[in-house]
């Protein structure tokens, strides 16, 4: 994942997304650089998850552009991975889940098992290797999902509310994983509605509200001096709709 050419920065311009004529994203523009942890914030319905899905390529925008404009940007599809709020694990063992993901992304057969085992060991999940994934606890499942994404050696990791259904202990474990992945040089882009989590993780904040990007700012600046009315209310914990 290092030593290869970068797909970043990600340049998004006038990004629009509408479903049956209803505009859910109304012209987002931002640029994501390598290295930092970007947290997308905003109240429910702001368009956070949509933005991640569009950047990850799961949805096709109805307007605007998403460009991976780094030197390797032309072939970015396999260089970014995503972890969902509710991970979908296949009905097989934890290890087989990783092997499946590696096989799907065309990792040579001979390397698959080795990389799967390594990924589990990397995150201290080796004990779960032969357990059916669906019998794991919610926290274990999410850790496995992150290990699976990591095993694909992405340069960018998208995480959509990865801890929202989890208890505090599991949340802490996930945050540690995110930190260690960041330390290895992987660009983190995640959404959260949890202010505390955002403060712990974010280097940079994108604040969305009603499908518009209201602020993009370094985290300390965003939390100390939010520029807009909505952001000030949000930082104070007053829910906005």
């Amino acid at each position: 994942m290092h030593g290869t050419l970068s797909i970043l920065p990600l340049e998004v311009a006038d990004l629009r997304y509408a479903v049956r004529g209803k505009e859910l994203l109304r012209g987002l523009g931002f640029k994501l650089l390598d290295g930092s942890r970007t947290v997308i914030m905003g109240p429910n319905g702001a368009g956070k998850s949509l933005t991640l899905r569009l950047c990850h390529g799961l949805l096709r925008p109805t307007g605007g552009r998403i460009d991976w404009s780094g030197p390797a940007g032309g072939n970015a599809t396999k260089r970014h991975a995503m972890v969902f709020q509710r991970p979908v694990l296949l009905r097989r063992t934890a290890r087989a889940n990783l092997i499946h993901a590696l096989s799907v992304s065309d990792v040579p057969r001979a390397e698959q098992a080795e990389r799967a085992v390594a990924a589990l060991a990397h995150f201290g999940l080796s004990a779960l290797a032969e357990r059916p994934a669906r019998t794991l606890s919610g926290g274990e499942q999410q850790r496995l999902a992150i290990a699976r994404a990591w095993a694909l050696r992405p340069q960018v990791l998208f995480l959509d509310e990865p801890t929202s259904p989890l208890d505090p202990a599991a949340t802490r474990a996930i945050e540690q994983m995110i930190q260690s992945i960041h330390d290895e040089g992987v660009k983190i882009v995640m959404t959260t509605h949890d202010l505390g989590q955002a403060r712990r993780i974010a280097d940079e904040v994108l604040f969305l509200h009603h499908g518009r990007l209201l602020e993009q700012a370094p985290a300390d600046q965003f939390f100390s001096q939010p520029q807009t009315e909505e952001a000030r209310a949000f930082v104070k914990g007053e829910l906005l709709w």
Binding site: R53, H56, L58, T77, K78, A81, M82, F84, P87, V88, L90, H100, A101, V104, S105, R148, L152
Partner: peptide, 12 residues
Amino acid sequence: SEYEEQLRSLGS
């Protein structure tokens, strides 16, 4: 309907 996003995300 349960798997689609995840599998497409993995590149399947």
